[in-house]
Every structure is written in structure tokens, then in C-alpha cells.
Design a protein around this nucleic acid. Structure first.
Lengths: 245, 245
DNA sequence: GCGAGTCTACTGGTCAGACCAGCGTACTAG
DNA sequence: CTAGTACGCTGGTCTGACCAGTAGACTCGC
């Protein structure tokens, strides 16, 4: 029941103090940490200890080091990159069923499109329209998926909710991994792509009309239409129930 | 546009290979890594490099080392702890607002209660009823919150969707941290507790009746009623819009 | 035969000192 | 004023050393 006042490990103390400096704003993003050799004298520890502390901070996305840069390690602005990493780790580690993942996506992506439809600016709408146009003009898979990413990105910014976007994106990635082989073997990939495009156009129209409810329903419907075939029968009903709700 | 086949930094290669072994299941939770001295010969790098790699893995919550343990570093099971850490970090850096977190909770918890209402077994319903009874009988804060945990746990099991439950739990924890100090200063804590209990009873009734839609709406409404006061005016409307949808 | 204590061979944590390639800056040559 | 270069520092890696701590074997008294 005793919580040690200061961490036992030397490197943990270093991590903690630097973290504190960042959180309290004493170290702002873009500013530089002292060099490793300076830090070791400041904290009274060896360079290996300093380095281990810096590695931890780096793996947490708080700093970035470049070999040879005399200005020292850079303090990075907070970014959802790490959230994405730990989320992805968690999703990958728990062996979850496809149905579970799709349920999650239907719930979150529905809300994402709802928010995007209500909050989007005209500029963001224009970005989405351009992305969908690129998709329909695309000649190869690479172009198509690049445009797809651009579309999702524009939607993400419009929602103004990082958390919803990051979580659904991560799960989207895992789902794609999960069915990648089955998708590659699909005989009618061209048909899938054009169906995909059609769904996007419909959703885009709903976003244009600022009809959040419709956009949400379309997004859930699209997910169901795509993936239901890959979900075993008994679980499929669970997804169907979420389409309309 | 060139993606290096193998990371430039030596320690990154080590991290990647061990991560890979964990993800593919070659290294299961509970099993042990070779000692640092063994790893350095296996990977052909120095001990400092091995240690930096292990520090990264440790900070990602994948392994745990104890000084002196001859069995070597232990591979840990996946846990949402890290997810929560990176989320808290974003909140502290003010790149994520309370409104965002609550939006997320309204979306996910709504679905959680919807699923629980539809899928719950009679035994699970009994557990929930017992928990709510414990809450109303509770004399102290500790008892009350223990019973609350039990209730949420029963609901979580009923949903059959780990991901939804884990994510909303993590965010719930972050939100509680965020308003902990403000809550402690609240003059009418007793009133808050009884309002909390009332909401739970209502949701329980909906779950008993297997009315998923109602349970979801009540859950969202409860979140709004509780937290809206703490959300700055301009963002509050976003939450209100999600109550009924 | 069996538990209590001890011993030991390892572990991870930390330190010191060294070398290298890489980078920014200030100085230099044109 | 610009192009080029040399310098002094940086981070990345390595070697080798010492210490405190631990698990498991080993011993001893019963």
C-alpha cells in the first residue's frame, strides 16, 4: 500500500522530471533538451541512464533525437500517434472476432459521419468532393486507395473529435488486415470498388445536405453490405440490428 | 518515398523482432525473454543497445524486468493501461477536450447498454440487480464505488463486445481523473450520488425489459445530465445533439 | 525424510570511458 | 555576397566493469 514518493530506478526519475517539465509547459514543443552529456551532469547519472530515459520519452512520442544535431533532442507536440499505437497493439493482442470489430466500427463511424455532416465547413466539403472525384478517376489500386485516405482524412478533420476518428481508423486497419487475403481472392474486385465508390458518393451527398442522421445510417449500411458476407451466420444478426438504430 | 526495409537504428531492429515474436504468439504472456547478455549475442549487438530496446518494450507495457530474477524479463499480457496513458497525455497537453471524451462515451456507452439489454442472460440481470441494490445500501464512498464497478462489470460481460467495453472504460477513467478535483469540491456530493443511483435504476429497468433503444437513450441522457455543467458553453450543444440521436 | 537456513551463480541497474558518423555553424576562399 | 569547407559538438554504439538483488540448489540440524 506504499506508493514510493520517487521512483526507485534512476532512469525513471529522469523520465518523470522531463515529463513534468513538458506538462507544466516549462518545455514547449519545438524547444530543445540539453545534450545527453549535459543531462548526465544535471541529473547526476551516467549517460546510459540518460539514454534509457530518452528512449522511453521517445517511444512515448514526446521527444525526437537526430544523430549529430548539435541543438539536442527536440520536444514534440502532442499527437494521437501514440494513442494509435497502443490502441492498435491492444486490438491486435486481444483476439477479437470480426463481428466485434465491425460492431465497433458501425457504432463509431456512424457517429463520425454524423458529426462530419453537421460540423463540416465548405472548404472541408470541397476536399471531400475532390477526393471522391479522384477515386472515380483512379486507374490503379494505389491511386484509388490514396484518394480514399484523403477522403477519410477530410472527414476526420471535420468531425472535430480525434478520439472517435483515431479509434475507428485503427480498427479499420485491423479489419482490412484480417480480410486482406480473402479480399485478394475475391473474383469481382472491380465490382467491389465501384460499390465502394457509390456508397461514398451517397454519404457525401448527405454530408453536403448536412443531414447527419442520414450520413450515419448510410455509413452503417455500407459497412454491413460490405462485410456481412464474411461474418458467420449467428453473429450477423447483431450487425443487422445496428444498421437502423 | 523509400521505406527502409529494416530500421536504421540497431535498437529498433531488436524492438521490432521481439514485438513480432509477441504478436505472432511465438512469445506468450507469462513466458520469459532470454537474459540481456544472451540477447546481445543473439542479436549481435552490445548490451546498451539491448537495454534500450528492452526499455522501449517496457514503456509500451509489453515486458517487465525485475533486477536479479534469473528467469529473465517477463512477457506481459496486453492491457489497456497504455491506452489510458497516452489518452491522459493528450488530455494534459490540451489537445483533447472534455467534450470530446464525453461525446465518445455517449456514443460507445449508448451502444454498450443497447447490446447489454438485448443480449443479457437472466443470471447477468440478477448480478446487475444485486449491484444496484448494494449501491443503494452503501454507507460509504468505497462501498458505493465497489458496487458501481460490479454493475459496470456485469453490463460489460453482457454486451459480448470486449472492444466497446474496454474503450469506454478507459475513457471513463480519464474523465474521472480529469474532474476528480472539481468533484471533490462539489458541495452536494450526496445529491450527485442519489441522482447517479436513480439513473442506474432506470437503465436497469430498460435492460430488464430488453428495451435496447431506451437503455441507450437513458445512458446518453445520464452522461449529459452529469457532465454538461463542466463543459464550456459552445461545446455543450454538440453533446445535447447526441442525447436523442 | 524434511523444513530452515545458507550459498551461489546468475540477473538487471548503473557507471565510466571510448570511437564513429552525422549535423549545424562559423569561418574561409572565391 | 555566395559556395565550400573545417570544426566542434551531437547522438548511436560498443566494451568492460561493479553492485544489489533474486531463484534455486544445496546444506544442515532435526
Amino acid at each position: 500500500m506504499f506508493e514510493p514518493v520517487s521512483p526507485v530506478r534512476a532512469y525513471e526519475r529522469v523520465v518523470e522530471q522531463i515529463e513534468e517539465a513538458v506538462f507544466t509547459g516549462r518545455l514547449r514543443p519545438g524547444s530543445r533538451l540539453p545534450s545527453e552529456r549535459d543531462l548526465m551532469t544535471q541529473f547526476g547519472v551516467s549517460r546510459s541512464t540518460v539514454r534509457e530515459a530518452l528512449r522511453v520519452l521517445q517511444s512515448n512520442g514526446m521527444i525526437q533525437s537526430r544523430a549529430g544535431d548539435p541543438r539536442g533532442p527536440e520536444v514534440l507536440p502532442a499527437s494521437p500517434k501514440n494513442l494509435r499505437k497502443s490502441m492498435s497493439r491492444l486490438v491486435r493482442a486481444e483476439s477479437m472476432s470480426l463481428a466485434e470489430l465491425l460492431q465497433f466500427r458501425m457504432v463509431l463511424e456512424g457517429s463520425a459521419y454524423l458529426l462530419a455532416a453537421r460540423l463540416r465547413t465548405d472548404a472541408q466539403l470541397a476536399e471531400m468532393e475532390a477526393a471522391v472525384r479522384s477515386m472515380s478517376d483512379a486507374t490503379g489500386h494505389a491511386e484509388f486507395s490514396d484518394a480514399d485516405v484523403a477522403f477519410h482524412d477530410a472527414v476526420a478533420r471535420a468531425t472535430q473529435n480525434t478520439l472517435i476518428v483515431v479509434c475507428s481508423n485503427v480498427v479499420r486497419g485491423v479489419v482490412l488486415d484480417l480480410i486482406a487475403d480473402r479480399l485478394a481472392a475475391a473474383p469481382d474486385r472491380q465490382a467491389l470498388m465501384s460499390a465502394y465508390l457509390r456508397h461514398h458518393s451517397e454519404v457525401l451527398q448527405a454530408i453536403r445536405d448536412r443531414d447527419g442522421e442520414l450520413a450515419a445510417r448510410l455509413a452503417r449500411q455500407a459497412l454491413y453490405d460490405y462485410y456481412a458476407d464474411w461474418v458467420p451466420e449467428p453473429e450477423r444478426d447483431l450487425l443487422a440490428a445496428l444498421v437502423t438504430s
